[in-house]
Design a protein around this nucleic acid. Structure first.
Ligand SMILES: [Mn+2]
Ligand SMILES: [Mn+2]
Ligand SMILES: [Zn+2]
Ligand SMILES: [Zn+2]
Lengths: 139, 139
DNA sequence: ACGTTCCATGATAATTATTCTCATTTTTAT
DNA sequence: ATAAAAATGAGAATAATTATCATGGAACGT
């Protein structure tokens, strides 16, 4: 929490509230989620500040911006390489902290400088699986 | 091309043009890309028709809607399970038709009904890798 | 504590992708 | 040819995100 100053980020109450909400959060919240939660304790915060803060954190590599949900961006304070499950019905995103040992053939590496990979598993979470899970078929 | 009628899709000139453009296309075009290309031979086509057609095809499982590009949805007529590379700089998307043999532990399967998976590799394509590839760090 | 500099905030407008509405036209089956 | 059903397209509407910019507040050196 203190090291934000060190990376050239001013520590404001708004940012502290956002950081506090993100710290250890595994729900992969959207900007809207973050806004709504922070707003409870900080009613005057603006949406712009949420986006500004998220962008500042992302640029410094302190959070990840996930493109796993077709509707909106989701943010992840867990910056260690890991994978995700997304429920096609309720859109919940769950961490998969497993090493799948993805190795690509040299032939491919020659044509593309691979910097990383991310597996998205899609399916139905426990809750949605029970009561007849109808998804919309998107990937 | 004929089997569209069989699935309850009326065959219009607009749709034929879109289908023709998509057939065998491996560029993973966006709706905008499709619109611009089809427009050349079919100037009066509307954006709504492009979206309508894509949605109709998607609902019937004839194309995939990819969420790999943070900016926009990309469409893929190749519906066989496969993976993708995305260039962080020029956003080009390339197929990876390899089987990586992803097996998830039973423990996880118990808590989530996994219907499929998709690996996205990110990095720099040959063209962008040459001339000092600066990405924006998004995942 | 004070002052200065620079960055952050937030109200609001703008942009962009996508979806919706609905009157009109076209396809397809009879 | 006719009629029913579905598709088209112009445009409005929605939703997520980004941009503007005047004002306020942190940081830091004094
Ligand atoms: Mn995660
Ligand atoms: Mn593909
Ligand atoms: Zn669910
Ligand atoms: Zn590239």
């Amino acid at each position: 929490m203190e090291r934000f100053r060190e990376i050239g980020l001013k520590l404001t109450p708004q940012r502290m509230a956002i950081l506090e909400y993100l710290d250890g959060n595994t729900t992969h919240p959207s900007a809207e989620d973050i806004y709504q939660h922070v707003r409870k304790r900080f009613p005057m915060i603006s949406f712009a500040t949420v986006y500004n803060t998220l962008e500042a954190l992302r640029k410094r590599g302190l959070i990840l911006e996930l493109t796993i949900d077709p509707e909106r961006k989701r943010y992840d304070p867990n910056i260690h390489p890991h994978h995700h499950l997304i429920c096609l019905k309720c859109k919940s995103v769950v961490d998969v902290e497993l090493d799948f040992n993805i190795t690509v053939p040299e032939e491919l590496k020659g044509r593309f400088e691979i910097l990383g990979n991310h597996i998205e598993f899609y399916g139905l979470c426990e809750k949605c699986s029970e009561k007849g899970g109808e998804s919309d078929g998107s990937v």
